[in-house]
């Protein structure tokens, strides 16, 4: 029944749909553990304590007694048949509440404790799950950070490759230049050799050409005499 009434008087849920809902719990009314104190089963305690400063502790009872005496005496409250049936009903109810009240209360308290524990455990479970998810996500991020390292290494690798290619080309250029210079050196060598050879043969030819037969004869004779002297010495 209470839940039905709650449905009728439920708070306006429009508020829950707006972005104004923050976790500002400071102004939220806490749900009390125990109800406000009552006397005689249902009369609020404040109605009694209201009289205390002026009349003391008997004041509320004097007021209540006087009021009911007045109402009954003037028959503003008429004691018809419903009053007596109400009295007997009240007596039965009081006996029932006194007899069954504690055990029912204990049963219901146990029920509400279990109910709350169920919600609480599901809540903590969910928080734990989310925390592990966050942890997992952080670990994944940490792992993804490794990709950066791999990327760096790859970049370095490419730089090294570029450097190697550069050096290879540099050495290629050096080799090519050296080859050309070597060719030039070779060429000059050959030219010089040719010139030398040519000059030598030219000189020799000219010298040979300048010899007369008499001179040749003289040299030949001289040679033969030299040889003879050599033979005698040996």
């Amino acid at each position: 029944m209470l839940y039905l009434m709650y449905g009728i008087f439920a708070p306006n849920l429009r508020f829950l749909g707006t972005t104004n809902v923050t976790s500002n719990n400071s102004n939220r009314r806490p749900r009390p553990e125990h109800p406000s104190p009552v006397r005689h089963g249902f009369i609020p305690e404040e109605w009694f304590t209201f009289f205390y400063p002026k009349t003391g502790v008997t004041g509320p009872y004097v007021f209540g007694g006087a009021l009911s005496t007045y109402l009954i005496s003037k028959e503003i409250y008429v004691l018809e048949h419903e009053f007596y049936s109400g009295l007997s009903l009240a007596a039965v109810l009081i006996v029932l509440v006194k007899k069954l009240g504690p055990s029912v209360a204990a049963y219901l308290d146990k029920g509400i404790d279990e109910y709350e524990k169920g919600w609480e455990s599901s809540r903590t479970e969910q928080i734990k799950d989310l925390e592990t998810a966050v942890e997992h996500e952080k670990k994944e991020q940490w792992r993804t950070d490794g990709q950066k390292m791999i990327m760096e290494i790859k970049k370095e690798n490419i730089h090294m490759q570029l450097e190697a290619a550069y050096r290879e080309r540099l050495s290629h250029v050096y080799q090519e230049v050296k080859k050309r210079l070597d060719y030039q050196v070779h060429l000059q060598d050959i030219e010089r050799k040719l010139a030398q050879k040519h000059m030598a043969t030219w000189i020799v030819d000219n010298v040979k050409k300048s010899f007369t037969p008499e001179q040749e004869q003289i040299v030949l004779n001289r040679c033969i005499s030299d040889l003879q002297s050599l033979v005698q010495k040996a």
Binding site: L2, R31, P32, E33, P35, V97, I112
Partner: peptide, 28 residues
């Protein structure tokens, strides 16, 4: 009247370990 109703609800109906008082109050 609405505030009064809700104050009554907060004091007697909504507490975790409420008793039979709100039923008697409604009846009376």
């Amino acid at each position: 009247i609405s505030r009064c109703w809700w104050r009554w609800q907060h004091n007697y109906v909504h507490p975790k370990r409420t008793g039979i008082a709100p039923f008697f109050q409604l009846a009376v």
